[in-house]
Simulated scan of single mutants.
Amino acid sequence: MIGFVGIGVIFVMVFGGYILAGGKLGIILKSLPFEMMMIGGAAVGAFLVGNDMDTVKHTLKDMGKVFKGPKWKHADYQDLLCLLFELIRLARQNPVAIEEHIEAPAESAIFSKYTKILSDREAIGLICDTMRSASMNYDDPHQVEEVLDKRMEANLHHSLHSSHALQTVADGLPALGIVAAVLGVIKTMGSIDQPPEVLGKMIGGALVGTFLGVFLAYGLVGPFANKVKSVVEEDAHFYHLIREVLIANLHNHATNICIEVGRQNTPSHNRPSFSDLEEALKAVKQDAA
């Protein structure tokens, strides 16, 4: 919602200020389709040239994050802690019983309680692969920690491709605006024999290209890239929480301590309170009983 508000504020303030200052929209509206065709078309073409199809699809999908915000909400972090509590508790009580859950999470009675988490392939992969490593009696938890760090770093790097691609487009838009403006000046010079009022409108139309390139870069595409990056980094905390809890488990801390480590490493605005989490864990124990 705030994304739509922000875009509205941009357009109202820029064009509202222009109109209140005595500017006329006629020249802008007349030139806009042609300038947008040159600048927008060139930007889209450069975007396609500079990225593979997977990145293109990923970027188009991620642009929705500007309006949707982070995928993982406050309740999801509490659900994740409850899920990890159940899994660690079962793994310590009955190491054999945990295998059916981590080998086939889609059929697991535990995972099926948390459908949103179950639908995320990366989260399930992190949980199952790490717990599988624990069941193989890794002697050095630091080795698993290193593997997890590299995996999460690679996943974050891949997830940030779309924001980098958008930022590259934003960086190029002012230059493309200058290209469109130069073409407008060339067109004007070809009509140098026209009266001043005609030349004035043609020069004004040419300058629309410069305006449009800068406006799109710093008013829309650049902020889109920054928002996508911030949302991706915000969602990465969810996977970081998985790492913290499971590494604590590999160090053989008590189950409640492992979960508390995860709670403490949850971002403050998504962190469940100690009492709320205790109530949720009590409910988990009662269901298991």
Rank of each mutant, 00 (worst) to 15 (best):
A175W: 10
K187H: 08
L207M: 14
A206G: 04
K201R: 11
L212C: 11
I178N: 07
L183I: 10
P196R: 02
T210R: 03
G200N: 10
Q194N: 12
L176D: 13
M202P: 10
V208L: 06
P195W: 13
G213M: 05
M189D: 09
V185T: 05
A181P: 09
A206I: 00
K187M: 05
D193Y: 11
L176W: 14
G184K: 01
A181M: 12
L176F: 15
G213A: 07
Q194T: 12
I178Y: 02
G200T: 05
A180L: 03
V179D: 14
L199F: 03
P195D: 12
M202L: 15
G213F: 05
K201W: 12
M202I: 06
L212T: 07
A206L: 01
M189V: 09
G184S: 03
M189I: 08
F211K: 01
V182H: 04
I178T: 11
A206D: 06
A175E: 11
G190A: 10
L176R: 06
L176H: 06
G184T: 00
V179H: 08
L176G: 08
P196G: 04
M202K: 10
M189N: 07
E197H: 15
G190W: 05
G204T: 13
V185N: 10
G209R: 00
L212Q: 06
V198G: 10
L207V: 01
A175S: 14
V182D: 02
T188S: 13
I178D: 12
D193H: 13
I192T: 09
V179F: 05
K201L: 11
G209E: 02
V185P: 07
I192R: 11
P196N: 10
P195T: 07
P195F: 04
L199I: 15
L199Y: 13
I186G: 08
P196F: 06
Q194Y: 12
Q194R: 08
G200R: 05
V198R: 11
L212P: 09
P196I: 08
V182A: 02
V198W: 04
A181I: 01
A181K: 00
G205A: 14
G190F: 09
G190D: 14
I186Y: 07
P196K: 07
G209I: 00
G177M: 01
V198T: 15
G209V: 01
I203K: 03
I178G: 04
V182Y: 01
L212H: 02
I192L: 15
G205D: 07
M189K: 04
K187P: 02
M202R: 04
I178V: 15
V198M: 12
S191F: 09
T210P: 13
V185I: 14
Q194S: 15
V208W: 04
L199H: 06
L183Y: 01
V179G: 08
A180Y: 04
V208K: 07
T210C: 15
G204C: 05
S191V: 06
L199P: 10
V185K: 05
A181F: 07
L176Y: 15
V208E: 14
V198D: 13
M202Y: 07
S191C: 07
L183P: 01
G190K: 05
I192V: 13
G200W: 05
L183H: 01
V198N: 14
G213N: 10
L199N: 12
P196H: 07
L183R: 00
P195S: 03
L183W: 00
G209Y: 00
P196W: 03
L183E: 05
G184D: 06
I192S: 14
